[in-house]
Amino acid sequence: MAKKGILLINLGSPRSTDVKDVKEYLDEFLMDEKVIDYRWIFRALLVRGIILNTRPAKSAEAYKTVWTEEGSPLIVITRKIQKKLQEVVDVPVEIGMRYAEPSIETGIRRLVEKGVSEIVLFPLYPQYAMSTTETVIEKAEEVRKKKFPGLKIKYIQPFYHRDIYINCLAESIREKLPESFDALMFSYHGVPERHIYKTDPTKTCNMNDCCYKEVNPSHQFCYRHQCFSTTERVIRKLGLPEEKVMVSFQSRLGKDKWIEPYTDQTLETVPAKGIKNLAVVCPAFVSDCLETLEEISVEGKEQFLGAGGEHFYYIPCLNDDDRWIDVIRTLCEEKLSQFYLV
């Protein structure tokens, strides 16, 4: 029988906090046409002509605030997930990053060197987006066709709505929520509005009420809908009233319109509305990283408190929580079993 393996994919991180390494990482990341979806010449002018001349130094300083003795938090946490998962499954487990090392190609090669010919590839993103799930699958297919043509890969689909994930996320939030809070903010990574339309092959999305319809053809491709759906399912599980919950979108880049409301603007306005004690969770991420540890728990906290807030509580990602490892194991084993059905 063919030997099987699991490849966990996360975003990636610079090799170090050195400006040169950060610049190299940002170049690969931002030059991805699934991230900044301009024609190559305009993307290059923006990224290499403007962004990479100013942003790397600032980003390097931000990375220094979250870097650990072991390295990048995202890489360290993903390796911990790999180790824990390997202890509960009987097939080899490797990791790969969409950007920088260990790359997707590196992860695949390590599995192939162990004799693996059938891989379950798991993009560690609960919701589907062009700049996350789609670019991972596209890159993996590119590598497979060029370097490993005999390899079979099955991809785990977005799991934002799966009960095992919702239960896990809800319990993690419940344990970390303060006894007293005025509101719980779900801050998701933002994307440009045009990405929502581009990823909708059904052309039924109107960026308005369709996200809230029980059934709509675009839901399986709509990041915005999937974020709202995750929130709705979690607050139902937690038994929270809707008036104590907010949804916002962070990390926007450039002047294009991104999906709203924006996290930074929300943090600056809600204290005036009587929300003085705020808890924030970031369910677009399963591993804590720069966007959660620095952008939210440091910058976001400063924005909120500076606007008159009194207490700010950041709720960590699932990271290597044993319940989350069990979710990963279950989803992987479901997909592994499909190889036997071919």
Rank of each mutant, 00 (worst) to 15 (best):
Y25M: 13
L46M: 09
I51T: 09
I36N: 00
D21F: 10
K34P: 04
R48Q: 10
L45H: 05
L52S: 05
W40Y: 13
D37L: 02
V19W: 10
D27Y: 04
I50R: 06
L26H: 01
M31Q: 08
D18Y: 15
G49Y: 12
G49F: 13
I41E: 04
Y38R: 04
Y38L: 12
Y38Q: 04
Y25P: 07
S16P: 12
I36C: 00
K20D: 13
L26N: 03
V22T: 05
G49P: 01
G49C: 10
V35S: 00
K20Y: 10
Y38C: 01
E24M: 11
D37T: 05
I51M: 14
Y25W: 08
D37V: 07
R43A: 08
R48S: 08
E28K: 12
L26A: 09
A44H: 10
E33P: 00
K34S: 05
M31L: 15
A44D: 02
D27C: 13
L45C: 09
L52G: 04
I50K: 11
A44Y: 12
F29Y: 01
D37A: 03
D27T: 14
L46F: 04
V47R: 09
K23S: 14
F42P: 05
L45A: 10
V35A: 00
D18N: 15
V47Q: 07
W40L: 10
D32H: 00
L52Y: 01
Y25D: 13
L46T: 01
W40I: 06
Y25R: 14
D37W: 03
M31K: 06
D37G: 01
R48H: 10
K20I: 07
I36P: 00
R39T: 12
D21W: 05
L30G: 01
F42A: 13
D21P: 04
I51E: 07
D32M: 01
W40G: 03
A44Q: 09
E28M: 06
M31R: 03
K23P: 13
G49N: 04
G49K: 06
K34Y: 09
I51A: 14
L46K: 01
R48P: 00
K23A: 13
Y25A: 15
E24R: 15
V22D: 03
I50M: 11
I41D: 02
L30R: 02
S16G: 11
K34H: 12
F42V: 14
E24Q: 14
V35C: 00
F29S: 11
I36T: 00
Y38I: 08
V19K: 13
E24S: 14
Y38G: 02
K20P: 07
M31I: 05
E28A: 07
D18P: 07
D18W: 15
N53W: 12
I50S: 09
V47H: 12
V47C: 11
L30T: 02
W40T: 06
Y38K: 05
